[in-house]
Design a protein around this nucleic acid. Structure first.
Lengths: 151, 151
DNA sequence: TTCAATCATTGACATTCTCAACGACCGGTG
DNA sequence: CACCGGTCGTTGAGAATGTCAATGATTGAA
């Protein structure tokens, strides 16, 4: 079985083989690159994820919190920020007057299109050490890990 | 080229294909599982990483901060916590009296051995959706991403 | 000997996470 | 119809974490 045993020590032997440690580091790198790519649009990866759902799904805030694994109170602040800029709006759910449906405005859709390109560019940069096939394989593996709890 | 286009929507089409988003979610899952596995030992993944370096490397606090990408002030607090429990100690660097070398005590080495097993168990749990070969492949890909800045 | 740079430390500050509470509203029961 | 446990969005507090500036002690080089 191939392991990291024959590889040079990068941080420490135990941590070099610890996937949670590697995931944390890779995630931090990707988040930094993503935030940098989005900074010119006044977004961060977190607000971008809310904008993406508003543009592509149109969920209630409750659904939004579950999908993004955020506390409902965090969703309030994030939607507030996007709504003040006219990027999303809260619509009443005709079937449940407690719920607020978050949908992107035309301005929000336009910014989302640009933000998605910016994120894609940052991803190409972050993934530069990998070949095309490896990038696809990584995405597949990560989806199976990250979405393991969905069915 | 294989993409996520033919896969069911999990969160949103854009986010399902966003590696930074998937990395963040997988990292959060792994960190939660790791913290749960370490909770009985009075450790978290962060303090565990410091203990691992103290046990396997014995670096200065400066070196420790660079390896773990932490602010030096965070290292102070983390080493304080471990030192108060008698798990590590600060030794003087004979070649530089400003530096403090962090090394694990016998108690720290013993706890590290148990913590490493606990982390391995959590990792097996987190990686359950993947085959053995896929787990190895994921570790390889993550190392190349996370350590891309080291040569 | 002098001086800029480095190390560990302290403290302040912003950001983020987590949790409890509340009014408004839902669905079901009597 | 009136009630009532549960849900949704919201507010606010507290903890945890990240980031940054300043300082005393020490280093290495001019």
């Amino acid at each position: 079985m191939a392991t990291a045993d024959d590889a040079p020590v990068r941080v420490s032997p135990a941590l070099d083989a610890d996937t949670s440690f590697l995931l944390a580091r890779a995630s931090a790198l990707a988040a930094t690159a993503g935030n940098r790519a989005l900074s010119g649009l006044g977004l961060k990866v977190r607000s971008y994820s809310v904008l993406a759902l508003a543009a592509e799904v149109g969920p209630s805030q409750r659904d939004l919190a579950e999908r993004l694994r955020l506390d409902p109170s965090q969703v309030v602040a994030l939607v507030d920020g996007l709504e003040e800029r006219g990027l999303v709006e809260r619509r009443l759910d005709p079937s449940d007057r407690r719920a607020r449906i978050v949908v992107a405005t035309p301005e929000g859709l336009a910014l989302f299109a640009r933000a998605r390109e910016a994120i894609a560019g940052a991803q190409r940069e972050t993934h530069a050490p990998l070949t095309e096939e490896e990038q696809v394989a990584l995405g597949d593996l990560l989806r199976r890990l990250a979405y393991a709890d969905l069915q």
